[in-house]
């Protein structure tokens, strides 16, 4: 029952968020600020994680395919597909749920407990819209870009680790990347990226907005934002995979 109550509150929150902003100029400014916080601010961590995921997946796939029967360029192909289909969108989203999600929830939660949200309401401003819409829109713009970037870096990381560890030459790895490439896989990955970016930002904003109490509750909201974002990412990962890969 509680789940349905929270889900209903989440939908009502979204209804309040998706209204026309009070001032377009201020909204555009907020979009730039939030895009910088969410996108540019996550650049380093996504670079590091995606490079190493590509590197590790190459080594592990190479380890499992050492047979002498299968051509080694298959390593590149499997690394490509596993990174495009799963690692880049899902791991990036899970990392950003921790970084961006907790940040959004704690920022809005702090505004709530320090009466800044009340101040907005008293001024006649739709506080849900003002505090959350720019964050959601910026997340939906920048997180898919980070996913594309993560895809690229994971393949570069895979090529470097394959070459450095002597598992596969760069030429063979690139041949594997080009073999039977399906553009639809990127469409699938980007569908996940857009869905996850909306989930991370909206779930976290909702958790922040329903914070009541003090510093302790802000911490709790931040934790809940990460946990619920991760759970919804995993759930929708399954749903989207089922819907798009086995029609």
């Amino acid at each position: 029952m509680r789940f349905f109550q929270h889900f209903g509150e989440y939908l009502l929150f979204l209804k309040a968020v998706f209204t026309k902003p009070e001032k377009g100029k201020i909204f555009v400014k907020q979009i730039f600020t939030e895009s910088n916080n969410i996108g540019v601010g996550s650049f380093a961590i996504i670079s590091l994680i995606s490079t190493f995921i590509g590197a590790v997946s190459t080594i592990q796939i190479g380890y499992q395919l050492v047979s002498g029967i299968l051509p080694d360029y298959l390593i590149g192909r499997i690394v490509r597909d596993s990174n495009i289909l799963e690692f880049a969108p899902t791991v990036t989203a899970l990392v950003l749920a921790g970084k961006v999600g907790s940040n959004i929830a704690s920022e809005i939660g702090t505004m709530k407990v320090t009466e800044q949200v009340d101040a907005l309401e008293i001024m006649g401003i739709n506080a849900a819209n003002y505090t959350s819409l720019a964050k959601i829109v910026s997340g939906v713009i920048t997180i898919p870009m980070l996913v594309l970037y993560a895809m690229m870096l994971s393949l570069i990381g895979g090529a470097i680790s394959g070459w450095a560890s002597g598992i596969i030459s760069v030429e063979s790895f690139v041949k594997g990347l080009r073999t039977d490439f399906m553009g639809y896989n990127v469409v699938f990955a980007m569908t996940k990226a857009y869905t996850f970016s909306f989930l991370i930002t909206s779930v976290s904003a909702f958790q922040g907005f329903r914070t009541e109490g003090g510093a302790l509750e802000v911490g709790e909201s931040s934790t809940k934002a990460v946990v619920y974002s991760c759970m919804s990412i995993i759930f929708f990962d399954y749903i989207i995979s089922q819907l798009m890969l086995f029609k």
Binding site: M111, T114, E115, Q116, D118, A119, E121, I122, M123, G124
Partner: peptide
Amino acid sequence: RKDIGMLFQNTALF
């Protein structure tokens, strides 16, 4: 509400 100004206990400055 546009006619209302409010000073909060903890100021509620942004």
